[in-house]
Design a protein around this nucleic acid. Structure first.
Length: 464
RNA sequence: GGUCGGAUGGCCGAGAGGCGAGGCAAGGGACUGCAAAUCCCUCUACACGGGUUCAAAUCCCGUUCCGACCUCCA
């Protein structure tokens, strides 16, 4: 089966066919860097990272763009609040996002354009729109898109222009129609601005994505992604601008669903946003990624500490099997994709179904350890590692911290068996009080002892 | 008001006309000096009311409840 993907525009799952055979171009709306990243932000990044990894594994040459919105009202407000300059605020939070993505092993985009680096392209786009008669500059320095001139406006969200609630806050003095939206905003005193033929100002939110997508991906590209809340107005407006300029723009739209808490969308304005750095004090990055990635990208993920902990335990179980396989086989598993996992992923990235195939591998692999069947251990370990690699949760991936340094591990590897030897001797003379004392003593140091068919083995506690 | 989703066992979570995903928890068993880990078994659900059909969690009509978006948002 070939890859099938949902398309927000048609609300159907259909065969994915790239515009250029063998190549896939993706544009995902990145964050406005104005605050700490929360787990909703990184869920989006993880979802699209899984898509990217799957496409790459499937043999496509993927160009993946995720922008940084580094100029925006909220950044300006934040700068006032933090008594800082807007660019310092943007850079500070951009770095936090970069770090959050890195700690979850989200691959860096092929290109990661900043809005402020593409003012020229935005001006060119506005010029084109004004020449076409779809945009207008009323003379105050603003530039607006005249939405009533567009035949296909609002087709992505399926709404009608006249049914929209009128904007409450918009300054409509210069608009021909209250629903026209700003491509460009005239500079207010003290605000950063860039010169344009219509006066100094700064970009509106929507214009940048159209300009950057065009700059990096051309007139048409395969997939445009983002969070569900961007469907309207952001993506509608991107479509409006781009199509009015004569571009075909995105061939397919993918939107990820929310992380919710108590049934409500996680957001800063609701005050229930959970910062990534806070959660990473509770679980490791790889565990958080496993948690975020294991829900289907179009399903809500109801966050709770209990669910996160449970998910982390489940992941450690898988990880433990892989560790044991390396102990028993002496080599790291060779990543392999099996048919069940492949079929699930090709069905609109059905990760929950794909996880069932991992569970099966895990069960068979553990059984193989009990049976001492090295061939079966290797097969299942390979398939699990292949699946984990696509999900970005490969414990052998050097992008994840590997715990203690090698020489410390070597030292422990020498020392702990000495204690285990004592314990084994005690067990042989049935002095269980002594053997249990050794095991309990090691446990207090965070070292867990398990008696396996192959003899005792030790492992460090998971939390670093 | 408009647009779009959702409701599945104790919990999480797939499925989308027949063949009961999977995980967690719980109970039982195997293994073990004990523990841990692991494996095996058990627990049979689809919001409600109608309808279509040989057959409905799945399709149709209606109802209830929950959520998202409607110019800040991943």
């Amino acid at each position: 089966m070939n890859l099938h993907l949902y398309d927000t525009a048609t609300r159907e799952v259909g065969v994915f066919k790239p515009l250029i055979p063998g190549e896939v171009s993706i544009y995902v709306c990145g964050a406005t860097v104005q605050s700490h990243p929360h787990i909703g932000h990184v869920r989006s990044a993880v979802n699209f990272d899984i898509l990217r990894r799957w496409l790459t594994w499937s043999g496509y040459d993927v160009t993946f763009i995720r922008n940084v919105t580094d100029i925006d009202d909220k950044i300006l407000h934040k700068a006032v609040h933090e008594k800082s300059s807007w660019w310092a605020v943007a850079m500070k939070y951009e770095r936090m996002f970069t770090q959050a993505f890195a700690s979850l092993n989200v691959l860096p985009p092929t290109y990661e354009p900043r809005a402020t680096g593409h003012i020229t392209q935005m001006i060119e786009l506005m010029q084109k729109l004004i020449e076409n008669g779809d945009a207008y500059a009323p003379g105050n320095g603003d530039v607006y898109l005249e939405v009533r001139k567009l035949k296909r406006y609002l087709t992505l969200s399926g709404q009608k222009l006249d049914d929209l609630q009128p904007a409450a806050d918009a300054d409509e003095t210069f608009k021909k129609d209250p629903r026209d939206f700003a491509l460009w905003k005239a500079a207010k005193p003290g605000d950063p601005s860039w010169p344009t033929p219509w006066g100094p100002g700064r970009p509106g939110w929507h214009l940048e994505c159209s300009a950057m997508a065009h700059a990096y991906l051309g007139e048409a590209f395969d997939i445009h992604g983002g969070g569900l809340d961007l469907v309207f107005p952001h993506h509608e407006n991107e479509i409006a601008q781009s199509e009015a300029a004569g571009y075909k723009f995105a061939n397919r739209w993918l939107h990820n669903a929310w992380v919710t808490q108590s049934g409500e969308k996680m957001s800063k304005s609701l005050g229930n946003a959970l910062q990534v750095e806070v959660i990473l004090q509770r679980v490791r990055g790889i565990e958080l990624r496993w948690y975020l990635g294991s829900a289907h990208y179009r399903s809500m993920l109801e966050y709770s500490e209990a669910a996160l902990d449970e998910s982390a335990v489940a992941f450690r179980r898988i990880e433990n099997f892989l560790t044991r396989s390396v102990e028993l086989l002496g080599t790291e598993p060779e990543p392999t994709i099996n048919d069940a996992f492949c079929a699930a992923m090709n069905d609109d990235l059905a990760v929950p179904a794909a996880l069932a195939s991992i569970s099966e591998n895990l069960r068979l692999g553990n059984q193989a350890i009990t049976d001492g069947d090295k061939k079966a251990i290797a097969k299942n370990a390979n398939e699990i590692r292949g699946a984990l690699q696509i999900l970005g949760c490969d414990p052998f991936d050097s992008n994840y911290p590997q715990g203690a340094s090698a020489h410390v591990n070597d030292a422990l590897d020498g020392v702990i068996p000495l204690a285990l030897k004592e314990r084994t001797a005690a067990r042989e003379r049935k002095d269980f009080a002594a053997s249990d004392a050794i095991r309990d003593g090691l446990l207090e140091l965070g070292i867990t002892i398990e008696d396996t068919a192959q003899g005792p083995r030790w492992s460090m506690g998971e939390k670093s």
